[in-house]
Design a protein around this nucleic acid. Sequence first.
DNA 1: GTTGAGCGTT
Length: 199
Amino acid sequence: EMSRFGRSGPPPIRDTYSLLVLNITFRTTADDLFPLFDKYGEVVDIYIPRDRRTGDSRGFAFVRYKYEDEAQKAVDRLDGRLVDGREMMVQFAKYGPNAERIQKGRIMETVPKPRGRSRSRSPRRGYRDDHRGRDSRRRSRSRSGDRYGRDRYRERDHHRRSRSRSTSPDDYKRRGRDRYTDPDNHCCFMLGYIPYIHL
DNA sequence: GTTGAGCGTT
């Protein structure tokens, strides 16, 4: 919901190349980063981890590219770059969202090898559909720029909503519930007796 | 209105 590129969640993390961007300001957003990184290739996602409670940036970001050479170029050109008064560090990520080890910003294939039969059937993994050509890539890049604009608006909207969110009477009711007299908690009551049952 | 090593998403 925050700063997404596609419309249905983040793109699949496989077959993308993740860069870890360190030392950015706590107020630096994906909007600030996108134009910088977009210069060097097709950015498929930018994610800035935030504090779950406050929503504050944790001061770093993940920028994902579709192609390795473009990601590499971004590292070469953007590492050490001054952004909003701080020198950001750009490097290939080493761990995935679920702590998978990744190489060159890409998740290592954990796909079990089809042992034995029918080996070289499908195209090899290094395969890139470059047959689309440079032009289609340029065009899809501008389209993602448009989507990006919408997301940017939605991000602000989301921000407004969460700021204006206040404690409702329902919250007080929920909080005031006594867990020993609340009918909804009878199960917990009974569970407390289970250790004393001998069977 | 503050902070500063680090590896991520309903």
